[in-house]
Design a binder for these strands. Sequence first.
DNA 1: TTTGTGTTTTGATGTGGATCAAACTGAAAG
DNA 2: CTTTCAGTTTGATCCACATCAAAACACAAA
Lengths: 251, 251
Amino acid sequence: MARPELARQQNTQLVLAELKAACATCNLRELCLPAGLSKEELDQIEAMVNIRRKIRRGETLYRAGEVFDAVYAVRSGFFKSRVTYEDGRDQVTGFSMAGEILGMDGIGQGTHNCDAVALEDSEVCSIPYVRLEELSREIDGLQRHFHRLMSREIVRESGVMMLLGVMRADERIAAFLLNLSQRLNARGYSPIEFHLRMTREEIGSYLGLKLETVSRAFSKFHKDGLIEVEQKFVRIRNVEGLKQIYAHHVN
Amino acid sequence: MARPELARQQNTQLVLAELKAACATCNLRELCLPAGLSKEELDQIEAMVNIRRKIRRGETLYRAGEVFDAVYAVRSGFFKSRVTYEDGRDQVTGFSMAGEILGMDGIGQGTHNCDAVALEDSEVCSIPYVRLEELSREIDGLQRHFHRLMSREIVRESGVMMLLGVMRADERIAAFLLNLSQRLNARGYSPIEFHLRMTREEIGSYLGLKLETVSRAFSKFHKDGLIEVEQKFVRIRNVEGLKQIYAHHVN
DNA sequence: TTTGTGTTTTGATGTGGATCAAACTGAAAG
DNA sequence: CTTTCAGTTTGATCCACATCAAAACACAAA
């Protein structure tokens, strides 16, 4: 309102880079495509994944309510998914990194159910859903792969329900750090030191905690020699110690 | 241990009733199958849904860790899904009623991720997953329908994350009652009076609350003239009042 | 009918994390 | 360089819900 030209600028910051996808040479292939595809099948898939799109930090890939027509494979960068409730309260429902698929929530109603916001400058491959459906019928490995991805999302979310429903604050945060660590490791990054792309508040929102509680837990873990934290930088000093935090409760 | 014969008996209580499915005449058809199928397609689907299985109250349809090979359509009865954590803590992750699909969590890893427990004597149609995959390739409405079902499960779970992450106790319980009411309504039952199939403890587990908190909320709603409760029987007296409970908070 | 067992209700008390508040940090903007 | 500001840390206090405890109740088995 105060700075209309800035607001407008932000609305047009979405950058469409119409680069051809190159699944065959993509080093995330084994994360987002089924194994054992023939050259020919890879070509078909490349033709389906028709656009690479850049999303700048702070911009949305899609918003709740928008018509769903594609799912997205994160090529680089980092996203949060956010559901906003009628009364304005919102919650972060997930964080997505390279090789992960975004947007599957939209299939059910034909509109997206959450906002996907880039937490750093990012790039995604856009996969039109109707093409995915068609190709799934031809390449049966693709169909199964896609089912698996959706199913894993269901399982991931029930894991979060567990976090939110039964764990205490420091257990949630230990689990969060270990989960990040494991996913980074699977992508060839160091599992013991990394940059958090999200704020304490976003972590808290995801874990059903307030930012102060997240901060206090980090401080406590540091005091106990489990981690080092400096702003967004984290080094895990004692993986087993972190694991024991949520094995450690009574009952 | 103390009563081995009883334990054995319970293990064999699963009843297999090899009845042929009759999707064509099933009054849940519009809930679990895509619309607009030809007679021929319906026949194919009936051949796929090859077994009706009865599960008695307290028995499991499947357990976490078991090999996944089928999804299940609830024909009658009521189930809870339960995830048990390494240390023994568990959480109810959902309740399923007639016309809903169970077991999609198993596709990702090839093993089930939770236990599905019948809360009353129930009957399911068993749908072998490999047959579902095959048929999805032939009947494209079926593929899309199945994708929608999985996607809705993802959306449902992010709704629960919202409950658990940001709502206060009485909001959660109001939302829970309204959700039940709406699902019963969609099945032709009364949306304003119904029997709870689950205990206060199971409701609490689902909502991340203790059973006493659930009980107190029910008492409070009763006192405020919103509902009548007598044991498992619930009558909603003021739907709008319930809705306002979670629109009513400050901020 | 009694007995037992699981479930629910209600009350009294405790506590983990929220809330409020203030100071601190680092990076970006001027 | 200083200013600004979003993000973070830390402390003090509060409160929603958990925990503990006991009584009431429902229902099935004996």
